[in-house]
């Protein structure tokens, strides 16, 4: 499937800021399930900084913007050819040992309810267990935007019983790690179905490490594994660690952020 992405993030400041530094995980890396046809990221008034591929195989690009500015616009435009590999991440070059992702972080820390949820899944092998865990998380947390926020933890979302893709991913990661499966957060894009049923074009899901298969994606928010509608940008321990844009503005006031994302399936 050929997907085109148009993703604009607009930061506005109520006072001019002296400088802005950003670290982007905004360029998809090629792997068996996705091939980048064209891709361009621009930052208004920005200078491209260093670029490297990190140990997890993500392309990291730094940007700096010299102030004073009151607005910074990050624009992503590109086209990716995708293929449905049933969630399996194949041909992705990385060096980080999967065991690293057994460590918890604040948003994925366990509590009694998460442990009970994780223990409620039963299966004969690791792959089936991963599917079962994803299913119990989907059942326990209903999709509902606006009730959780960027710093909501997996435990809090489970207590609410509602949340968005970030909460589903955190909860699945916490449950998987509790069952001894290395798990990580993935950020990317999702193209909506023709009936518009899929949620959140700027999307997030989890990858679990299955011996013999490697990393396999699970999207509890949509009760499926990533397929040709998904574009993978990068991964991390949690949402913050895997964020497509991490940035800091020096010497300014309040920051507002506005995001628009459109993912289109190109006509064949």
């Amino acid at each position: 499937m050929r997907l085109t992405v148009d993703h604009v993030t607009r930061y506005s400041y109520d006072h001019p800021v002296r400088s802005v530094v950003q670290s982007h995980r905004l360029a998809p890396a090629n792997h068996a399930g996705q091939k980048v046809i064209e891709w361009e990221v621009t930052v208004s008034g920005g200078t491209k900084g260093s670029r490297h591929r990190d140990g997890a195989g993500d392309l990291i690009q730094a940007w700096t913007v010299a102030g004073p500015v009151t607005e910074v616009v990050v624009q992503v435009r590109g086209t990716v050819e995708t293929e449905d590999l049933a969630g399996v991440l194949r041909g992705h070059r990385e060096t980080v040992a999967p065991d690293c992702y057994l460590r918890d972080t604040l948003p994925t820390r366990l509590d009694v309810a998460l442990i009970a949820l994780a223990d409620s899944a039963t299966a004969a092998d690791t792959l089936s267990l991963a599917h079962a865990l994803s299913a119990v998380v989907s059942d326990a947390i209903a999709y509902r935007p606006g009730v959780t926020h960027a710093h909501t933890t997996a435990a809090e979302a489970l207590a609410l019983g509602e949340g968005v893709c970030q909460d589903h991913a955190h909860a699945l990661i916490a449950c998987a790690r509790h069952r001894g499966i290395a798990a990580r957060y993935v950020s990317g894009y999702l193209s909506a179905n023709e009936d518009g049923s899929a949620h959140e074009a700027a999307h997030a899901w989890a990858e679990l490490y299955i011996p013999g298969l490697g990393w396999v994606g699970f999207d509890p928010a949509n009760r499926c594994c990533p397929d040709a509608r998904y574009i993978r940008l990068g991964s991390g321990f949690d949402a913050q660690d895997a964020a497509p844009i991490r940035g800091i503005a020096r010497g300014g006031g309040h920051e507002d952020m506005d995001v628009t994302v459109a993912i289109l399936q190109a006509a064949q």
Binding site: V21, Q22, S23, G49, S50, R51, H52, D54, I60, A62, T64, Q240, R246, G247, I248, R250
Partner: peptide, 22 residues
């Protein structure tokens, strides 16, 4: 580097780790 490690760090240098890694 608050962009790589603790985001609340006031001591760090934003973007330093990207420069280091490259």
């Amino acid at each position: 580097d608050p962009l790589c490690f603790r985001p609340d760090s006031m001591l760090g240098i934003p973007g330093l780790m990207d420069v280091y890694r490259s």
